[in-house]
């Protein structure tokens, strides 16, 4: 804290609306070239592309397996059904450091899966996959953004992967509306009073 106290900040721009204090309020995707489309008119953006832009087919197999392990299909859709792997591809493709992190992170995962013995992560049985993932996610969860230490490559990768999976899933129609049950963005004549019993 003490070094922060002495920091003089030079700020380029203050947001034009209210400032939210948490980085997680800003999705990774917002830093992606916001508009490679000609306009910001709501697009049929949900339409999934045929192929990933950045990931190779082999990498994409792993991305899909990982995404569905983090958010699996249950009584509501899972990450793959929600198009999360393509969202991750879109975001990672926009940033050189993410490209590097994801390429190396996915390679690390294949090593852990035993690629030298011809095994690939997405082909492992679920129990083995979960066994690899559990300590990784634990370390990633413990690592808070902004903390001074830089953890190992695979932990940084998992932190980014889980965050992007959460972002992509919970902003998709399947995640936000079907799974979470979002009910807003409607026209009401009166603001509804509370239905809960307190």
């Amino acid at each position: 804290m003490s070094d922060r106290r002495d920091t003089l900040k030079i700020i380029g721009a203050i947001g034009t609306t209210c400032a939210f204090p948490f980085s997680a309020d800003e999705l990774y995707g917002q830093q992606a070239p916001a508009h490679d489309h000609a306009s910001e008119t709501p697009a049929q953006a949900a339409a999934m592309p045929a192929k990933p832009v950045f990931f190779t087919d082999k990498e994409f197999d792993t991305v899909k397996a990982l995404a569905d392990l983090i958010i699996p299909p249950t009584d509501t859709p899972g990450a793959v059904q929600a198009g999360v792997p393509f969202y991750i591809d879109y975001v990672v493709n926009s940033n050189e450091s993410w490209k590097k992190l994801f390429r190396e992170g996915l390679a690390w995962l294949e090593e852990a899966a035993g690629i030298s013995n011809g095994k690939r992560f997405h082909m492992l049985d679920e129990e083995t996959q979960i066994g690899i993932l559990t300590p990784l996610v634990k370390s990633a969860d413990r690592w808070k953004t902004g903390s001074k230490s830089t953890p190992a490559l695979e932990v940084r990768f998992m932190k980014a992967f889980k965050s992007m999976t959460a972002d992509g899933y919970f902003t998709s129609k399947a995640g936000l509306v079907d799974a979470l049950g979002y009910k807003g963005n409607t026209v009401l004549s009166e603001f509804p009073t509370c239905i809960h019993e307190h």
Binding site: G29, D36, H37, A43, A46, Y87, T171, L176, N185
Partner: peptide, 12 residues
């Protein structure tokens, strides 16, 4: 809604 945009950000 956010899913109407490729980067999931509702532009102002």
């Amino acid at each position: 809604m956010p899913f109407q945009f490729p980067n999931r950000h509702i532009p102002t």
